[in-house]
Structures are given as structure tokens and as C-alpha cells.
């Protein structure tokens, strides 16, 4: 009996060992959690009040003085957008050349200066930083003139008066035209992160949910993927977005704000700004402005004339 019990115990131990051996397996693969970005949000600069945001320096055609302020006196480096259809965008059918209403202004300035033009694609958030650091000479990227920006950079005279509006889905047009901004309550509205557009829409309709994106084209991808219901921005920019999507509509509406566009420059480059103002004057006078507007924006925004400049800063 004792021998049988011992044999059974032995057999049981061995069986358990074999089962354990067979059960050897692997732990499931785990993807490590990423380190959370703990960057603190940038301090919000309080808006500066003034009554001459669109007033620039008197024009001058002193080309030598203007060229002396370029970072490279044989080349004009202009920060532009390459994804804002009609204002500044790369055309894949034309060797990816960047073209648009803003680009026409940049080319005219470079031609008048007698230097080559280098277009550098920048984001909206980079405009002031790159001007202040001297990496670029000018910004021709639908840049609104305001008092806060005047404390950091300089501007040319106004070359276009844009207005902030809202783009909605085709099936939301009727509701928007009936109730206006009230129809956006509880809806996701997209605008570029850090832009004044996002502040303006939350001020005008606090019940709208503001959603940020890197740029307006980023808003369009969110719009097409159903992540946002509407996009707000300058009418010029919205026209370019609507041109890319037949279901994106800018309904008839009152403007949210005025957005006067100026060419941005380094605050110290006053001679360059004066020269740009003379170029803008010339374009207004010789019909170049009108031709450019008619080509790029008139089909979407209707008739318009060149804005009158204000000088005396």
C-alpha cells in the first residue's frame, strides 16, 4: 500500500510539473504610456487700445534705403501661406508655384525693390516671431492690423478690408440664415489656435464650443471628418475653404469683425514700410490691385475696390 501511495504521489508531482511546463507563456505586449506634455499655456497679452490701427507711415520711393533694411540685399524673404486657396497656396498644376492675392502683393514689392523673391511658408502663429527674429523681411499672409500687433511689429497701409464670418455645413445653412449665431449654440466651431477669430466667436456666441486647429485648412479636415460643425475666419480664407468643398457654405450674414490686412514688417524697418506703401499706392493707381482682386477673390466675394490708405504715423 505504501509503495502504491508513494508511486501515486510521484506520478501526481510529475504530472503537475509537466502541466506547468506546458503552461509556460508570454505576457501580453504593452505599449508604454507617453510622457504627458506639461507645457504651461502662454500668458495672454491684454489687448492694446488705440484709434490708429490702420494708420501707416507716409509712402516713399527711396529704394536704396528700403533695400538696406533687407536681411539679404539681393533677396526679399516673405512669409506666406501655401494652403490658403485664393490668397496664397501651392498650385499642383503649375509646378507647385505659390500663388494668390497676397502673393501678387509680395511679387510687386520684390519687383519694385529689384531683388529676387523667396517665399517662405509660415504658420499664422509664426508671423510675429519670425519678423521680430529677422528670419524673414515681410509677412504677406492675411495679417490683420491691430493695436496690439503695432506694439511688436510695423505694418504697411491697408491693402484689403476683410471681415470675419462663419462657414457652415450645407444642411445647416437654412438654420444659420434664420437664427444667425444663435444656431451655433452647442455646436463645435473651429478656428486656428491662438487666432483672434476664436476669441471673437466665443465672445459673440458663448454657447458655441470653440475647437482649435493648426490652421484653417486643419479646420477643414476636421469639418470634413465631422469633428466640427462650423469654421470661422476671414471671408477671404473661408472663400478658399468653400472652393474646396461643395458642402461647405458661407451663408449671407453680418460680419463679426473688420479685419484690415496690412503687410507686416519688422518694427525698425520704417524705410522698407514707406517703400511698400508707395508700391501699394502705385498698384491702386495702375489697376494692378483691381486685376489681382478680380482674378482671385471677386468670384467668391463679389465686387470690391481698393481700400483708401491712411498715413501719418
Amino acid at each position: 500500500m505504501s509503495r502504491i501511495r508513494t508511486s501515486r504521489a510521484l506520478a501526481a508531482t510529475l504530472t503537475a510539473g509537466l502541466l506547468l511546463l506546458g503552461a509556460c507563456g508570454y505576457d501580453d505586449t504593452v505599449v508604454p504610456e507617453p510622457d504627458t506634455d506639461k507645457t504651461t499655456p502662454a500668458a495672454v497679452t491684454p489687448p492694446v487700445e488705440c484709434d490708429d490701427a490702420t494708420t501707416s507711415y507716409d509712402p516713399s520711393n527711396d529704394r536704396t534705403a528700403a533695400r538696406s533694411e533687407l536681411k539679404n540685399n539681393k533677396r526679399l524673404v516673405v512669409g506666406v501661406s501655401a494652403d490658403t486657396l485664393r490668397l496664397g497656396s501651392a498650385n499642383p498644376f503649375e509646378d507647385n508655384d505659390i500663388e494668390g492675392f497676397d502673393i501678387d502683393v509680395a511679387r510687386a514689392i520684390a519687383d519694385a525693390l529689384g531683388v529676387s523673391l523667396q517665399l517662405r511658408v509660415i504658420s499664422a502663429a509664426e508671423r510675429i516671431t519670425l519678423l521680430k527674429s529677422g528670419d524673414i523681411d515681410l509677412v504677406a499672409r492675411n495679417m490683420t492690423m491691430n493695436c496690439t500687433r503695432w506694439t511688436e511689429i510695423g505694418f504697411s497701409a491697408v491693402y484689403y478690408n476683410a471681415t470675419q464670418k462663419v462657414l457652415v455645413r450645407k444642411d445647416d445653412v437654412a438654420a444659420f440664415e434664420k437664427d444667425g449665431l444663435a444656431s451655433l449654440a452647442g455646436k463645435n466651431v473651429c478656428a486656428p489656435t491662438g487666432s483672434t477669430s476664436i476669441d471673437n466667436i466665443t465672445e459673440a456666441q458663448p454657447e458655441a464650443v470653440a475647437v482649435g486647429a493648426a490652421n484653417h485648412t486643419g479646420c477643414l479636415t476636421k469639418f470634413q471628418n465631422g469633428e466640427v460643425d462650423a469654421i470661422t475666419g476671414d471671408d477671404t480664407v473661408l472663400a478658399g475653404l468653400a472652393a474646396q468643398d461643395p458642402y461647405a457654405i458661407v451663408p449671407e450674414q453680418d460680419k463679426l469683425t473688420d479685419e484690415p490686412y496690412g503687410i507686416g514688417a519688422n518694427k525698425d524697418d520704417v524705410d522698407l514700410i514707406r517703400f511698400i506703401n508707395s508700391v501699394l499706392d502705385e498698384r491702386r493707381g495702375n489697376g494692378a490691385w483691381q486685376a489681382s482682386y478680380d482674378k482671385w477673390l471677386k468670384p467668391y466675394l463679389g465686387d470690391a475696390t481698393a481700400p483708401a490708405p491712411k498715413y501719418g504715423r
Partner: peptide, 24 residues
């Protein structure tokens, strides 16, 4: 979108590349 000549195509592409490299 790129074949249609629309800039939103580049946004989809750079978004796809960035997301591909994003954590998780």
C-alpha cells in the same frame, strides 16, 4: 484632393504622417 489641386490634400498628408508618429 491633391489631384484636384486643393491645398487641403497637403493637410491630410501631413496630418497622417504626424499621427503615424504620435505616441500610442
Amino acid at each position: 484632393y491633391n489631384r484636384l489641386g486643393y491645398p487641403v490634400g497637403a493637410e491630410y498628408l501631413s496630418g497622417a504622417s504626424t499621427t503615424l508618429r504620435d505616441a500610442l
